[in-house]
């Protein structure tokens, strides 16, 4: 049983990075596809399209920070379950927000091509999703401090 909990602990430790990386890759691919398409139809402003399409890359960075905050000198039965719970759920959050951020960024790029003046405001939904990722990061850090070592 103890070995199983230890395995879960290791799983939870790496989950924020792995799931965050998947979310970032997925989100950047969605936003990047929109940026590439928009560049075919634009005579300028390529940088801003590519720039915003990279916004979901923050999820993997948050995942790395969470992993370091969860890292323990030793993973055992006392802390394995906590690492699993915090790590897995924060990772799922990074995965989901990364994908959704890519989707809203694709929509923002598409809409701002037709109406360039809304470019800034069209990024608001993506910024809100970024905020949710930050919530998950901050409270994962808070809880990481109370894990028994």
């Amino acid at each position: 049983m103890n070995e199983f909990v230890v395995a879960l602990g290791w799983f939870g430790l790496f989950a924020p990075v792995a799931l965050g990386a998947i979310g970032s890759a997925w989100g950047c691919a969605l936003g990047g596809s929109a940026a590439i398409g928009a560049m075919l139809d634009s005579d300028g402003g390529y940088g801003r399209f590519i720039g915003v399409s990279l916004m979901p890359s923050s999820q993997v960075i948050y995942g790395i920070v969470i992993m370091f905050s969860l890292q323990q000198a030793q993973i055992d039965a006392a802390n394995g379950a906590a690492l699993f719970g915090i790590g897995l759920l924060s990772g799922v959050t990074m995965l989901f927000t990364g994908i959704r951020q890519g989707e809203v960024l694709a929509s923002a790029i598409h809409a701002s091509k037709a109406k360039p003046e809304i470019f800034g405001i069209s990024l608001a939904p993506a910024a809100v999703l970024e905020g949710f990722s930050v919530f998950a990061l901050v409270f994962a850090l808070v809880l990481a401090g109370s894990i028994p070592s």
Binding site: S33, A34, I36, G37, L40, D41, A106, K113
Partner: peptide
């Protein structure tokens, strides 16, 4: 399809 749709002008 994302790339295709965004490549079409309004």
């Amino acid at each position: 399809y994302i790339a295709l749709v965004t490549s079409l002008p309004h």
